[in-house]
């Protein structure tokens, strides 16, 4: 996708296999299937796909919360599977998560300011309580809150939007370089959603952060990101510049996702239809293209053989699509 120096994170041929069922007769499911991606420095990469496409598993692998069955995650030059001691602490400080539900991020019985101060002291970004307080207030300022607004408050005393701001501030306490934001606005109401996304975009500009934005919402993905990777049942089926991929999709799966978007314009009624696959697991087990059972262009080969990555001509950098039709007909 780009040269070594320009990326902060490299995902190299990562696979995660989960075992299903019993010990003897169980089967296996590759929740993440040979995924290779790079996150550019100061860039936002969106991971999009339906529920069950492997986005969250991949984000947890990046964070080191799940160990991949195969493959490598390189943060800068650090292989995070082998990171120990000081290197691991550095990784945990520099790569911070933001989760979907802020009410689950925080302990409901702990005052939010205590939690934030604890993070500053625990990560050793502050050596004293007063220094921790200064760092926490700075982080809260960045997200448009102040220390006095959170002092002594419990999580339930905030609205969802406010608490999500607090959880972004929590992530900022350690001065991270890379944020992994897993559906950060899908629980936030429409009137405050854009405020949260604007904060993320500001962080990138002001502090040169890189962001992995995980979502099923293509409109917000378009709004925040530079690059986008479309996932289907564990595979990245299309990847490239967000403008290219979302305004001129090549993979039938991306095309279907875009067709399924209802528009907030009643004169243009939604005409897409969703093809429900009988069983999610069946698609995962497909030997060929994971989308072949739902794809309108599907041929015998699509069901049997895994399609290769086909490079697509692009105005703005590397772009690929995993599709036999593109091999047959060219792109």
């Amino acid at each position: 996708m780009s040269t070594l120096n320009s990326s902060i994170l490299q995902i190299k041929d990562v696979t995660k296999v989960f075992k299903l069922g019993g010990l003897l007769f169980g089967s296996e499911l590759s929740a993440v299937d040979h995924v290779s991606l790079e996150v550019g420095r100061e860039k936002v990469l969106s991971l999009v796909g339906e529920s069950g496409s492997g986005k969250t598993t991949l984000s947890r692998i990046i964070l080191g919360l799940i160990e991949p069955t195969n493959g490598q995650i390189l943060y800068e030059d650090l292989d995070i599977r082998n990171a120990k001691g000081r290197q691991l602490r550095r990784f945990r400080k520099e790569v911070q998560p933001i989760f979907q539900n802020p009410f689950e991020t925080f302990n409901p019985f702990k005052r939010v300011d205590r939690y934030l101060l604890g993070s500053a002291l625990g990560y050793k970004v502050a050596n004293s309580k007063s220094e921790a307080r200064r760092i926490v207030s700075e982080a809260l300022d960045i997200v448009g809150l102040s220390y006095t607004m959170v002092e002594g408050q419990f999580p339930h005393e905030f609205s969802g939007g406010e608490l999500q701001r607090v959880s972004i501030a929590r992530a900022l306490v350690t001065n991270p370089r890379l944020l992994i934001a897993d559906e950060p606005v899908s629980m936030i109401d429409a009137s405050t959603r854009m405020g949260i996304l604007n904060i993320l975009m500001d962080l990138r500009k002001r502090f040169s952060m890189s962001i992995v934005y995980i979502t099923h919402d293509l409109d917000t993905a378009y709004y925040v990101s530079d690059q986008i990777a479309v996932m289907c049942r564990g595979c990245v089926v299309e990847c490239g510049d967000v403008e290219d991929v979302l305004t001129d999709p090549v993979h039938p799966y991306t095309q279907m996702l875009l067709k399924c978007l209802p528009e907030p314009d009643p004169t243009r009624r939604w005409e897409g239809h969703i093809e429900l696959a009988g069983l999610e697991v069946k698609e995962y087990e497909t030997a060929g293209c994971k989308f072949s059972k739902r794809c309108p262009n599907s041929e015998d080969k699509c069901l049997k053989e895994r399609p290769p990555d086909v490079e697509v001509e692009s105005r703005s950098g590397y772009r690929f699509v995993k599709c036999w039709k593109c091999v047959r007909e060219g792109v």
Partner: peptide, 23 residues
Amino acid sequence: KFLISSLPKIGDKEKKGSISGKP
């Protein structure tokens, strides 16, 4: 008006505002 104008849309990179303040 605010609710509708704050909806992001593919093809529109313009910065969208959110309603200031809180409920």
